[in-house]
């Protein structure tokens, strides 16, 4: 039997049926925002602005402690710099998997190269003689991230940017299973979950699977027009609201970040 969550009437009133995307013009285009409980997947091109959109998505942060931004590519400093630049709240939870991976794995590899090339110093040998166990290297980031998001309470807001990190290191079937769990959690707790995955190297079957799990599918694209770049996002799936399917050309402004300019309906 499905678990039932009791929502406080006060919360229901405060959070409402929909939440903001963090981009007011986009909220308007989507008829008020994103329905609570939605899982969004964004298929992205390199340089298409999806990272900024992901950050902007957490910026409404109705409850900072119930909001998490998980990045697999950027460091804490870079994320803080962007948030400061746009004056977005800095008290949300941020986890930088890429940075952790670098310090846990890559630094170790660097040290191994040093040992191999330069040999051991006396202090290295003393430490080696006192080290009885191999450091656990095979940290399961996928499980950790899943648990971290699933620990969030009702009306949470979470971003994972991007799934590429997991798809490259884990069995894609595991990643899909993780997304299914997160989607169920978001639905049950009326959370908002935004996931990104780059289209480069993504197998059609995984893409299809992810798209079918998500309640909303976006594609971030970039193309050149003459000597200019044009960035756009296409909403190709919006559960129970096909009228929201459209293509939005946007640019990045210093005041508002992602700013939709023109709209083309596709449904």
């Amino acid at each position: 039997m499905a678990k039932e969550i009791q929502f406080e009437a006060e919360d229901e009133e405060f959070f409402g049926k929909v939440g903001s995307f963090g981009v007011p013009k986009f909220d308007n285009e989507m008829r008020g925002g994103v329905p609570r409980g939605f899982t969004m997947i964004a298929f992205t091109d390199t340089g298409s602005g999806s990272e900024l959109f992901a950050k902007q998505f957490v910026s409404p942060a109705e409850e900072a402690e119930n909001t998490i931004y998980i990045s697999t590519n950027e460091g804490q400093a870079e994320i803080v710099r962007i948030f400061q630049k746009y004056d977005w709240p800095l008290d949300i939870n941020v986890r930088t998997i890429g940075e952790e991976y670098n310090s846990n794995v890559l630094e170790k590899e660097l040290l191994a190269s040093r040992y191999r090339l330069e040999g051991f110093r006396l202090e290295d040998i003393q430490r080696l003689a006192q080290t009885r166990f191999v450091d656990e290297n095979n940290q399961d980031y996928l499980t950790e991230v899943t648990n971290e998001v699933m620990a969030l309470g009702p009306y949470f807001r979470a971003v994972v940017d991007s799934l590429d990190f997991f798809l490259q290191r884990d069995d894609p079937a595991r990643v899909v299973a993780m997304v299914r769990m997160l989607q169920a959690h978001a639905q049950m707790y009326r959370g908002l979950l935004f996931l990104t995955v780059s289209t480069d190297g993504l197998s059609p079957s995984i893409k299809q699977e992810l798209a079918s799990i998500a309640d909303m599918v976006l594609s971030f694209q970039v193309r050149t027009i003459g000597t200019d770049f044009e960035t756009s996002m296409m909403v190709s799936k919006f559960r129970n609201a096909p009228e929201n399917l459209k293509i939005l050309v946007f640019r990045v402004t210093p005041e508002e970040g992602i700013t939709p300019e023109t709209v083309e309906r596709i449904a």
Binding site: L111, A112, Y115, R116, A129, F133, V134
Partner: peptide
């Protein structure tokens, strides 16, 4: 006092990136 030094090979392998 360092007269007997016992090294685990798997730790050595790990330090050298030989896992």
């Amino acid at each position: 006092t360092g007269l007997i030094n016992v090294f685990d090979m798997d730790v050595l392998y790990s330090w050298l990136g030989l896992e």
